[in-house]
Structure formats: structure tokens, C-alpha cells
Design a protein around this nucleic acid. Structure first.
Length: 271
DNA sequence: ATGGTAGGACACCTA
């Protein structure tokens, strides 16, 4: 019997330095055990680790990069087995893994490539890279882990797979993040370990849930042209431990905002 | 059909 009680927040911060105050506010308000950050936009050695440690997160796994990308797992609980991965022949810092000591739960923090604007991999190398990146992830999960390994996958996957993950399916079906080929590629990742989409486990498949609203729309909340790009998945053994998943939409109002809201997972009970 | 904003390596890239 393992105690799996844990709370985790995943957030694309769009610059960890620009968003440090908001990160501290998130910590003060929700007190998560583990935080997964994406788009640090900082080299590892300029991430404000002292402030993060002072806020209670002394265990840190950071995979930074100057200017672009960058992911981190911050924890109040000790981390082990830290690994970083740069997939699809890139040097992009988009994937970091750590295991939480005690529970043994593995955490994958991911920032999947956005893919540019033209949804055709033959003419748009960024879209081809995104699809190859997703294929590499599927191969990695299928090859390196087992269905019984308790793991959480959290991050900005840059794909909104379901009808209710976008504000208008018809208008977005040829827009990158909601095209058929990306959704199929993400589905292969999901099937690699029978990952469970924790948000949809809680809210069902039909209610609109968004985590991202473009900076380019003023009055983003009333217009509400959002997409669900940020996801938290768990392996099947943790399914019954899911207590709650929620998008922290309030944080999207905090100034200056990230264009992504955090997503919070609470696991409870023994498995 | 276009352009709108944001962050950082800032005569420009990415989202």
C-alpha cells in the first residue's frame, strides 16, 4: 500500500523571471506539493532558484535554455531519478522527468513544440518537428516504462484534441493545435501507456474546458476564444486516486499574465 | 482576409 496523496500544478509561465511574483502567489494560494513549469525562457543558471527555495520548493529539476523553451519540476518532496530529454534531433529543452521520493510517482513535465502556422508538414518544418516530437514521445513511453509504473504527465502539449477543447471546432479544424494529424499523433502518445486524461475523467468529454487564451484578444474572458492546450495525464494505476482537476482561470487575470492558466491535480488515497 | 500581444538572444525569433 502506497500513500499517493499529492497535489500538483502545471503551468506554462511564459518566462519564469517575468512571472516570479505570480508563481509565488500561486504557491501561497494553492500550496501544491509539486509544480511543473513550461516556457521558462531562461538558461538554467538564471532561473530564480533562491526565491523558489525560499517559497518552500528546495527540490528542483531544471532543464533551461536561453530565450526559448525550458521546463522545470519544483517540489516540496525530495526528487530522485532526474532525467532530461531532447527529442526529434533537437537541442530543445522541452522534457524533464523526476520521481517523487516516498510515493515513487514519476513526473514528466513537457512542452510540446507549437508547430508554426501552416498545417502541412511538407512545407512547414515546425509542424513536421512537432509531429516527429510526438512520435518520439510515444516511442519513449512504450519502450521505457510499464503500464503499472505510477506516473503523471503534465504540461503544455500544444494540442486541443476534443471538440470541447476548443471554442469552435469547425473554425479551428485546420488550425494548428486542433488538426486531425496532430490529434492522431497525440492519441498515439496517450495509448503508449494507456494514459488517463485526468481533466476529462473529472469533467466529462462534453463541457468546454480551456487553459489558453491568446494575448492578441483584448477582453479575452468575455470573448472566450480559448483552447485546452495544457493537460495532466496519469497512468492507469492512479486513475482511482484522482480527486480533482481544475483550471486556475483566475491566474490568467493576474498582471502581467501568462497566456496560459495553471492546471491543478489532486490525487488522494491509497492505491 | 487581416492583424492583433508578449517575451527574450531584441536590424528578429518564437509563441
Amino acid at each position: 500500500m502506497q500513500n499517493t496523496s499529492i497535489s500538483l500544478i502545471s503551468w506554462n509561465v511564459n518566462s519564469v523571471r517575468r512571472r516570479l511574483d505570480q508563481l509565488i502567489r500561486v504557491i501561497d494560494r494553492w500550496e501544491p506539493d509539486v509544480i511543473c513549469l513550461q516556457e521558462l525562457k531562461a538558461k538554467t543558471d538564471i532561473v530564480p532558484v533562491d526565491e523558489i527555495t525560499a517559497a518552500g520548493y528546495q527540490y528542483q529539476a531544471i532543464h533551461g535554455q536561453p530565450g526559448y523553451n525550458g521546463v522545470a519540476i519544483l517540489s516540496r518532496l525530495p526528487l530522485t531519478d532526474i532525467e532530461t530529454f531532447d527529442w526529434a534531433d533537437s537541442q530543445d529543452a522541452r522534457h524533464i522527468f523526476a520521481r517523487i521520493e516516498g510515493s515513487g510517482i514519476g513526473v514528466h513535465c513537457l512542452y510540446v513544440p507549437a508547430g508554426g502556422d501552416v498545417p502541412d508538414r511538407r512545407v512547414n518544418p515546425k509542424f513536421d518537428f512537432k509531429l516527429r516530437y510526438l512520435d518520439a514521445l510515444a516511442d519513449h513511453f512504450a519502450g521505457q516504462y510499464g503500464f503499472r509504473d505510477p506516473m503523471i504527465l503534465a504540461g503544455d502539449l500544444n494540442v486541443a484534441p476534443l471538440l470541447a477543447d476548443v471554442w469552435d471546432h469547425t473554425k479551428l479544424k485546420n488550425i494548428i493545435t486542433h488538426t486531425e494529424i496532430e490529434i492522431a499523433a497525440l492519441e498515439r502518445v496517450k495509448r503508449s501507456l494507456n494514459w488517463i486524461d485526468a481533466q476529462r475523467e473529472v469533467s466529462g468529454e462534453d463541457d468546454p474546458v480551456f487553459t489558453w487564451w491568446s494575448y492578441r484578444a483584448a477582453d479575452w474572458e468575455s470573448v472566450n476564444k480559448g483552447r485546452r492546450l495544457d493537460h495532466i495525464w496519469v497512468t492507469p494505476g492512479l486513475k482511482n486516486a484522482i480527486e480533482d482537476v481544475e483550471v486556475l482561470t483566475a491566474v490568467r487575470h493576474w498582471s502581467p499574465p501568462s497566456d496560459h492558466a495553471p492546471v491543478r491535480l489532486v490525487l488522494s488515497g491509497d492505491t
